[in-house]
Amino acid sequence: MGNEGGRNDATPILTLEELNRLREIAENARKNVIKMLFYDQTLHVGSSLSSIEIVTLLMFKYLRFGRDPLNRDYFILSKGHAAPALYAVMAEKGFIPEDELWKIQDISSILQGHPEIFIPGVDMATGSLGQGLSFGIGIATGIKMRGGTGRVFVDMGDGEHDEGEVWEAITHAVTRKLDNLIAIVEVNNFQLDDSVDSVKPKGYLPKVYEAVGWAVFEADGHDFVSLSEALEEALKAKRPSAIFARTVRGKGFPPIENTRKQRSSPDDARKHLINA
């Protein structure tokens, strides 16, 4: 577990004002993901709630948006089933109207069950696991060849690491010396059928990344300060970085929190939102 460079200045990584603002945005996004259950009961709410803080922090603090393809940042939600989290944060950002969120997966809505490239703010169509990192390597390589400053952030799941393409990608990234590529691996220990531990345990993953040649960091995936510290270090690293972010599936929604359950009833959602 590297701590390349280390932080020795006394400036807080986030001001109290920033922190409060991020928490407010994340809370809104979280509520909106839960509220989506009123309208559609097939969403991957549990996986989405695992990603809220990561997506919020990237969208509101780190990602530089713009039209110049070489001097902007990219965000790839490789765990595409967490699309509700992405959409909810994008609504906070103003990329899509909040009203659109309630139409998610409706035939008339732009918001598909998994991210599509035609949705404003989406940089890669995902939904089939294991593909985002390879795509990110392509973007990051192209940017570096042209001397751009753009960076690529790829959000992946732990279960997703069952896919063989991820191995192809992590071994590829280091050969390109991509210091503009950051992978965030959400460690929530759940995948579709069961816990990650009972399917194929993945405790070795950080060591694997490290052995392959990545700069590896750990963070609490629901804590903005911890995530920011890891991201600051990752951005300084002279090679591809991976942040293993411990998260909780269903975080903040007790009926499903830290269980394999992806969703609960609209009634549960209503009760929760009234009390929240």
Partner: peptide, 28 residues
């Protein structure tokens, strides 16, 4: 040599890698 990439025996990675390069404006 700078515009040639052997990604290794990794066809799946190769395809998405090419996709990413096209996003950056190249013609893979």
């Amino acid at each position: 040599p700078d515009r040639y990439f052997n990604v290794g025996i990794s066809e799946q990675d190769m395809v998405n890698f090419a996709g990413g390069l096209s996003i950056a404006g190249y013609k893979p």
